[in-house]
Design a protein around this nucleic acid. Structure first.
Lengths: 220, 220
DNA sequence: GGCAGGTAGTCTGTCGACAGTCGGAGGGAG
DNA sequence: CTCCCTCCGACTGTCGACAGACTACCTGCC
């Protein structure tokens, strides 16, 4: 008796699916910063109850993607230049910890191989902007995951939403020079050498450059 | 016409009050790790609707105070020794960034004064365990706030719930040697000297000691 | 005695409805 | 023409109820 052809049943809850849909809609730029996200409108458009949309919106609020305006009305968040600089400094601290822990681990070479694979994905993304963003963030998430510190991954993911709105806000379609394999290779090389100060310097420089990039000539 | 005697109206929403009540109940130890938090029971006990309790619980879930168990049932979270070590390494990274930014600021002496005041609060807490915890965490929050980086404060606060359950889990009533003015003074002194490497070393040592303390001889 | 099947209980997921509040449009008085 | 008052629309806050799902127990058959 064959069991394989039975498709996997989606056991995710409706709230989770709504959450993913809304997060995707915001981070893909379908909603622009400042746009009002009305519960009734979203509920009607998604065909679900207000309460379900409400819980998803609250989740996004804690992620920093939406912010409460007048009388609790939620709007898509946008970060000031100062906030962006602070955001990338926190990222630098977290990813600096990641490389520190990776270098301290005995299976450092396996981590290097995994990171090389992540960079290859970035190289294979070609000119597709969305794919490049995914590959770039995928590399940095992988960096945190390879540290073996789940709390570090958790902290990084807490910033992910803000990072995505920053990227999408700055570069609607222009492919920046930020997300290239050449930008990430030095990190891997420093890790491979076991050069902790060098790796930290590369990460900080990488983040500082990104902060400069995203705070200069703020787009629309 | 006198306007003063009018008391400030509490404009907080019911959900926020429920959230504070539940967070306080968990971090104060009224609920022990592993305890099941039923929506109906809490709603009945608090005299509010299930939906309101539900939103508060979801918030606490994102804070890491409660975790989803079987069939979405929420329980008070407890961290493994490994998670605690990872948690305090992330704290060290964040607070290391805080001292870095404070030292780089022009108004460093003002920050030093504010931190001294925070340590004085810790000294004035006496033997009251809850007050000592508040003063200790207050010092570290102040440290992040004085960096002038709101995103750093946000990231730290994201870990606050887990920090609190760790403390409450380990030291139900025993007053540890962790939260003393003597433990925090070296951080301030290094900041005052502008000694960045020294300050980072002190912070990391402080966090490593705390991690060791909370992972040794796990209570109940 | 052991196991399969049924059954009651309990918990969460989801929904629709009511109420309170805020902002703005519109009309009337000065 | 300007200002104020009133009414209306819209949005969120909060609630109670129904339905689905999983657990544990209990009973009857082998």
């Amino acid at each position: 008796m064959s069991v394989e052809p039975l498709p996997n049943i989606d056991r995710s809850t409706l709230r989770e699916r709504v959450l993913r849909a809304l997060r995707s809609a915001i981070t893909s730029g379908a909603y622009r910063p400042g746009d009002h996200l009305g519960e009734v409108e979203l509920a009607g458009r998604l065909g679900v109850s207000r309460g379900t949309v409400r819980e998803a919106l609250r989740h996004l609020q804690q992620e920093g993607l939406v912010t409460a305006g007048n009388r609790g009305m939620l709007r898509v968040n946008s970060l000031s230049a100062e906030e962006i600089r602070g955001l990338f400094r926190v990222r630098a601290a977290l990813e600096g910890l990641a490389v520190t822990e990776i270098i301290a681990r005995p299976d450092r070479s396996a981590a290097v191989a995994a990171l090389r694979a992540a960079v290859d994905e970035l190289a294979g993304a070609g000119e597709d902007f969305a794919a490049k963003v995914e590959a770039d963030l995928g590399f940095h998430v992988r960096l945190c995951e390879l540290s073996g510190n789940p709390m570090l991954v958790e902290s990084w993911r807490h910033l992910e939403g803000r990072i995505r709105v920053t990227i999408m806000n700055r570069d609607p379609e222009e492919a920046p020079a930020m997300m290239t394999p050449g930008r990430h290779a030095p990190i891997i090389e420093a890790i491979e050498r076991g050069d902790l100060p060098g790796a930290l310097a590369v990460v900080e420089e990488h983040m500082a450059a990104a902060a400069d990039h995203f705070t200069s000539t703020r787009a629309c």
